[in-house]
Nucleic acid binder design. Structure first.
Lengths: 241, 241
DNA sequence: CGAACCCTTGAAACGGGTCAAATCGTGTGG
DNA sequence: CCACACGATTTGACCCGTTTCAAGGGTTCG
């Protein structure tokens, strides 16, 4: 079940290296691995989840919904992202998580989380780091939705996903497989579906970028970055738990 | 300098109790205490801050600005909030923090943060919890700005501040001292100043709530909660470091 | 061949933005 | 004590970005 030392993700150079002791601890901390199809729900809003997860492969997203059916996507999850710190043992999840592609998750028992801190303080710190890093992404999304117009928001979303995908090695020559549909984009950016469609068309006309058959093509990254006033987050090797 | 065991905040019942050992550790981890006037900057965007902070008294906020001067307020900070996990040692702060009132901060050396995890795993977990909790607040703000209209957003902001202030014991009979001006509210909600003013006037006309002389008065909390489709975050005793 | 789902397009309505100017303290200096 | 400056709040008019409504087209799949 474990075999974390052979995990594909750990061959990527954006992740920090763990000691053998850490790896074998993580291996026994992990108690399962599950694979979901595209569009499946990992957990629902208000559910009580006794598990924590690491997204091992595939795409997913975290969201909140309203009674009228509208939905805010809070952030997009890519491989290496840790999931579930938003709630506590026996408390309801304030948001749901759903997959965008077929996806595999490593599963950890929430009730044993204190063991991480007790036995491997550095891994405890890593959990805090992962949490702080996710907060930065949500900060950025809030900044987009609060201050940028439709074109700028969309540029920002695409740039940040492009950069994150890039270090994961899933970008080839300016294009990447992109599983969000226009409704997802709309819900992430706080825009209507119709306006999302028109904004996307405008970016294509301006030769900035384009989505076609689940593929995002970036034609002019520099122009995009200027448009969105993009500022890279300080990058470092990320922990992987 | 320390005297954390005598900290006023710890007499409040919303904070969890620490052991004597934890308290004396925190006391020696804390290396300073600073007091700023209203409107002062704790640290600026892109600054490198070698410190971490706990807001001990007063109000503050965390924000990002753009080159055209527009600003997004990411969250409002109240006593007990931990500040600075957003960056790492020797890395630039991706956001700034500014006070809204005269405020006092406990100061901790960032380079010694691993000691927390090594010596007191439960305090390490508490740091993760504080970070996750702040993320929930930002999630909620993103949801507001992305999905709610002006009135709903404003109701939501006021409710959540009212609830947070209430457990801190600074609410009296439905009103609390409220140091945000209309520009702050606008920047938190992603609205223009003018529209913020008009929306505020509408809430007052509807007898829902009102701000007058730095005081927020809530007249109809139930109506407000319905308006904003408010859902309380699962509450528990919060850690205080 | 129809159903379901997603993308596209046009037209009209509206929420909120922008511009401009007036009002209201509040503190300062002559 | 008055004059003035400055920041914060108000208000009105107009404009524009985005939403809403409505309909059509494409593709996949049973």
């Amino acid at each position: 079940m474990g075999e974390c030392d052979k995990c594909q993700l750990r061959t990527l150079d954006c992740f920090s290296i763990n000691t053998d002791a850490e790896l074998s601890f993580i291996e026994q901390f992990k108690n399962n691995e599950i694979t979901l199809n595209a569009g499946d729900s990992l957990y629902r809003e208000n559910a009580i989840s006794s598990q924590l997860y690491t997204l091992k492969s595939g795409w997913a997203f975290r969201f909140r919904t309203f009674s009228d059916g509208s939905r805010q996507i809070l952030n997009i999850l890519l491989p290496g992202d840790f999931i579930g710190l938003q709630a506590e043992l026996n408390k309801a999840m304030p948001n749901g998580v759903e997959t965008l592609t077929k996806a595999t998750f490593c599963v950890f028992p929430r009730e044993k989380i204190m063991e991480v801190y007790k036995q491997f303080p550095t891994l405890g710190y890593d959990l805090t780091w992962l949490c702080a890093h996710e907060e930065l992404i949500v900060d950025e999304n809030l900044t987009s939705v609060g201050q940028r117009n439709a074109e700028e928001r969309m540029a920002m979303l695409f740039i940040s996903l492009y950069k994150r995908a890039n270090v994961l090695g899933i970008v080839e020559k300016g294009h990447l497989s992109f599983p969000l549909n226009q409704q997802h984009i709309a819900d992430a950016l706080g825009l209507s579906l119709v306006h999302t469609n028109k904004t996307l068309a405008k970016l294509k006309t301006k030769q900035i970028c384009e989505i076609n058959q689940q593929t995002l093509r970036i034609y002019d990254l520099a122009k995009m970055q200027r448009l969105a006033e993009y500022q890279a987050l300080p990058m470092r090797k990320r922990p992987l738990i």
